[in-house]
Design a protein around this nucleic acid. Structure first.
Lengths: 198, 198
DNA sequence: GTCTATACATGGATAGAC
DNA sequence: GTCTATCCATGTATAGAC
């Protein structure tokens, strides 16, 4: 029955991903996860013997990787790198507004919460970000010859995106994300221009 | 005795500010705040009848405004705007490392946590960010004639700073903050250059 | 191996002694 | 008006019936 309801473990992980994304780690209770997953409470400990931390680590790594692939696919859907960046930020703005400012970065809230309190989860978020940076560096490397510059651009894109999510969610306004896209486009244009000249 | 211990209300607010900054809103208990403030638990409700939310709203508005003034003072300590931005991000990187990656933005963690769950606190964080943007717009306006461009630069600086805090705290590495400073400097240089030509 | 009931700690909040 | 003791809900985690 491939078309039936996902299995219990999958439903738990999906519910946890959504709740951690919206309400953070401390703000999400396991009872609420079980309820939203339509799963018995004990099933959480059956599938995730390590409890809340293990569940969170899995959601961070899985949803983080998936989000990175999604953004990369979005970038690759437009050939020109400058237009591509603008398009990606516009898409993020649309998604955010469409989900009532709930679905931004799946791990940023948790990353800030656990940075100083939970080393296992901090490392999980750091690994996800490192993966995004590598992927971005490779993508920018198609147009920018200097590896350091490609790596700096990847950092900048992720940082300005994360910061834009903070401002857009707080203000319930897509404007920060749109401005972020234009700033990022300016940085890409300058870097690609330098590479074209050199 | 002006040189004695601060009064109870002040100690509570200071402890709350530090704890919300490090551990977030859901991650900080009122009992812990009372303990760290060396204040009796009941004093929290004596001074903040609205409970945790009122205390958090005050800390967001007060510490947010203070942080904005601090960053602005840092920017004004260097005459050239491009060097100024680089210097400010370097100072932020130094502070972060010196506090074991604890003292980044005082309100970002809370802002992400409450964006979808507590409207009073969401508005408080949005007001703080709006104040920062106005101040930054005015500061950039000294060198950039187009108000829209000054406003976009202010947004970009705050966004890239917030995003850099996320990456630097997660990785326990000052590099993202330093790269953020250089990217921001490039944006400022380009904008000031355009204003100088026009 | 799916699910219910419960243990135990901690959360925010309040009452009332002093 | 300062402080202690306590209330009740919720938090994570576990035991054990089926």
């Amino acid at each position: 029955m491939a078309q039936g309801q996902p299995d219990t473990r999958t439903r738990i992980e999906s519910a946890a991903t959504a709740l951690f994304r919206r309400n953070g780690y401390s703000g999400t209770g396991l009872k609420r996860i079980a309820t939203e997953a339509q799963a018995p409470f004990g099933s959480i400990y059956h599938f995730f013997p390590g409890g809340k931390q293990q569940l969170a680590e899995e959601t961070i790594r899985t949803s983080g990787a998936a989000y990175g692939r999604m953004v990369l696919a979005l970038l690759e859907s437009v050939p020109d790198p400058v237009e591509s960046v603008v398009h990606a930020f516009e898409a993020a703005a649309d998604d955010l507004a469409a989900t009532d400012y709930a679905d931004a970065c799946p791990i940023a809230t948790v990353a800030l919460e656990v940075a100083g309190t939970n080393e296992v989860l901090r490392i999980a978020t750091a690994d996800v970000f490192a993966g995004w940076i590598s992927a971005g560096e490779e993508w920018f490397g198609r147009w920018v010859t200097d590896p350091d510059e490609a790596r700096a651009l990847a950092h900048s894109m992720i940082m300005i995106l994360e910061g834009a999510f903070v401002l857009s969610r707080a203000a319930r306004d897509p404007e920060p994300l749109l401005l972020a896209g234009r700033s990022m486009a300016a940085l890409v244009r300058a870097a690609v221009g330098r590479a074209g000249e050199g």
